[in-house]
């Protein structure tokens, strides 16, 4: 298993929209220690998803260096698991086969694969649904399967791009708790992008606050509260205020209010934001 140390130095990324250059990210520096849970919060269009895609290796055309365990990130790696906002399960494969996709290029024996798949299906609480097809799953179950696929390689780093954004409030709360437990138990590094301040504070060891135009880090709020955490702990409420204050001062405007239906309204966003969402 990889260590899960991440280093970002001077990351900058520019998108070309209608022939004009729009800075999406500028001067991003961040050190992530192994086993740390980082949450990145910011308004739509602040480049947080782009930053995650750079760490994942899906975007390689950027300035600055992204380093994972001492190696420059030049493309996707099985040492970094990725979970998207949508489950993105293959509809023609069962849950079991979808999770096994993560091991397609892992070079394990058939038996080792089977064991890893059933272990990770159990880890996300989907035992008994191995042979179900994605259309038979609820949104929360589908996202659990996606998390299992992201973890099945035992990556050093798990990257999550608004993984609970499309779920109802009850399922979201439940999965946040489970994710916290899984990440702690597996001892892996996690980077989670969200626009939900409560989620960022509840899950993060450090909350990275970003502001748009160009996307940059305005503040990093450390949350030292021991786990498992209580959502109503006074310390968390303080941190929440600090994050909200940072969002207010750093960005022009707060992030959109937390809501149950995930997709952002594209009409109210500048072109750059639409480009980012399209990329995400």
């Amino acid at each position: 298993m990889a260590n899960g140390e991440l280093g970002l130095q001077g990351i900058a990324k520019t998108f070309r929209v209608d022939g004009r250059l729009l800075p999406a990210l500028d001067g991003i520096d961040l050190q992530v220690t192994p086993g740390e849970f980082i949450t990145i919060v910011g308004a739509s269009g602040c480049g947080k998803s782009t930053l995650l895609r750079i760490i994942a290796g899906l975007e390689t055309d950027h300035a600055g260096a992204a380093v994972h365990d001492g190696k420059t990130i030049r493309g996707p790696s099985l040492a970094r698991g990725l979970v998207f906002q949508e489950p993105r399960l293959f509809p023609w494969l069962t849950v079991e086969a979808n999770v096994a996709l993560g091991l397609e290029n892992a070079g394990l024996s058939r038996d080792a694969k089977r064991a890893a798949v059933s272990e990770h299906i159990a880890l996300v609480g989907l035992t008994g649904f191995e042979n179900a097809y994605p259309r038979q799953l609820s949104g929360g179950m589908a996202q659990r399967a996606a998390i299992a696929r992201g973890l099945v390689n035992r990556p050093g780093v798990l990257l999550l791009d608004e993984p609970f954004g499309a779920l109802d409030a009850f399922t979201r709360t439940h999965l946040q708790e489970e994710l916290q437990g899984i990440v702690a138990r597996e001892g892996i590094t996690a980077v989670l992008v969200t626009h939900d301040v409560d989620e960022a504070v509840y899950l993060g060891d450090r909350v990275v606050v970003m502001a748009p135009r160009p996307g940059r880090i305005t503040r990093i709020v450390a949350v030292d509260e021991p786990r498992p955490r209580s959502r109503t702990a006074a310390a968390l409420l303080h941190k929440r205020e600090a994050v909200l204050a940072a969002l207010d001062s750093g960005g022009r405007g707060r992030p959109e209010p937390r809501r149950l239906d995930a997709p952002d309204e594209p009409l109210r966003q500048p072109a750059a934001a639409i480009a980012l969402q399209g990329a995400a």
Binding site: G75, P76, L82, F84, F90, L101, E104, N105
Partner: peptide
């Protein structure tokens, strides 16, 4: 495109993307 991106993240080869994503999608 989203599933192709999953394939890229899982380091699928070109042939794996054809066999595991394009052909089943087209089935």
């Amino acid at each position: 495109v989203q599933l192709v991106e999953v394939g890229r993240a899982l380091r699928f080869s070109r042939w794996q993307i054809v066999r595991r994503i394009f052909l089943p999608s087209a089935a």
